[in-house]
Design a protein around this nucleic acid. Sequence first.
DNA 1: TAGATTGTTAATCGATTAACAATC
DNA 2: TAGATTGTTAATCGATTAACAATC
Lengths: 231, 231
Amino acid sequence: MSSEPLPSEAAAGRPPLLRVAPLPTIRRMASYLRILRRVRGEGQEAISGTQIAEELQLESIQVRKDLAYTGITGKPGVGFLVEELIGKIEAFLNWDNNTDAVLIGAGHLGGALLGFDAFQRYGLSIVAAFDADPDKVGTQIHDKHVLGMEKLANLIERMHIRMAILTVTADAAQSVADLVVDAGIEGIWNFVPVTLKVPERVFVQNEDLFSGLAVLSVMLQHNRRKDEAAK
Amino acid sequence: MSSEPLPSEAAAGRPPLLRVAPLPTIRRMASYLRILRRVRGEGQEAISGTQIAEELQLESIQVRKDLAYTGITGKPGVGFLVEELIGKIEAFLNWDNNTDAVLIGAGHLGGALLGFDAFQRYGLSIVAAFDADPDKVGTQIHDKHVLGMEKLANLIERMHIRMAILTVTADAAQSVADLVVDAGIEGIWNFVPVTLKVPERVFVQNEDLFSGLAVLSVMLQHNRRKDEAAK
DNA sequence: TAGATTGTTAATCGATTAACAATC
DNA sequence: TAGATTGTTAATCGATTAACAATC
């Protein structure tokens, strides 16, 4: 997986594009890691692409292709060393470094995320929560302090926080995004069903529950139709 | 597209879904609907694919292609009738019918979902929650009763529930899935980072938080690298 | 050795994007 | 009419899958 520029790019005099792996590949890495950590816990030292594929109901060729992005080399006839592969995937995902984040919107969903201590194993630590509701400010949710919005920008700057998790209401989302972007945030994990306008340098990862529900609804409807047609 | 229903089918029922639209199309439908409902609230009567595309930062050709799956016909030079388009998308997603669901696992995330009253506008109603913890059984979370696991199968069968929402712990997920599948569930909205084994007739929609986090982590890391390379 | 599995190159598939005539 | 937009067909792009030699 060389990151050499394509001839056309070189010819055009542009700087070599740093390539990111395909997004579907990146998403699958998280599940590979899950399997690998479990398997390590069971004392298994090597694992084949075939085994990973079976556990995740994927094709082994896809697993092999994906794993190649981490730079690991396997042993034909054997597979990959579990410990090494875990290290490579963690490095690929930058989950071997800790990333600090702030969470804005300490409602039900925000509270649930604050309680997710599994994040620690995924390189994420939420350093504080923020909310506009004076009744919430000053309290703690799952051991995280809830601070007032007026403290947000300053904390981001002072602690060089790069990631913000948005769980505010839809009508507040854009203004909060503006605020954190101004303060220097580089990535937003957005749980609000709103299309945020941000400068190009800021990356937004949208988690849209309703799009998942849409898929499920359509598939349920589709299966029912099939059943009825079969009668 | 040859089997597109005529406008007159609106009263008669729904388009015969022989093929399912591409999954990315289905996911985007949810966001189209969001824009349309807002725009309707503002009193706008027609909307062009161009306008929808701008609001969602998409290409207009993609919006037009997607909307074609609903069977709607627009007016060249004008666009689509907002009210009609909302109806078509709701029908496409089956969100004009109510779907009952059970939620299993009344922890933090499960509780947050129980409190999401927006689901009502997306055709979903959670009729009850279930949990193995005796301390939770008998309580109410956001006005939903929490019942014991021993009542689950019977309620699914009696009420002909087709959808189950899984927010249990990872180690319980497969056995709960087996249970609801046996009881006749046709679709599972799975929030547990576990690959469920289910019969082919059951559709599983996985919502994997960590895969979203993986994308965000990689992009943050990537942007930082680019910045450093630029120096 | 025989069987399993890797890693690469090529083929296929499916979704996105482009082009453009038709039409309001 | 002129400008905007739809809807269709074709081209492109990117990801998945197939094939298979190399190798443990």
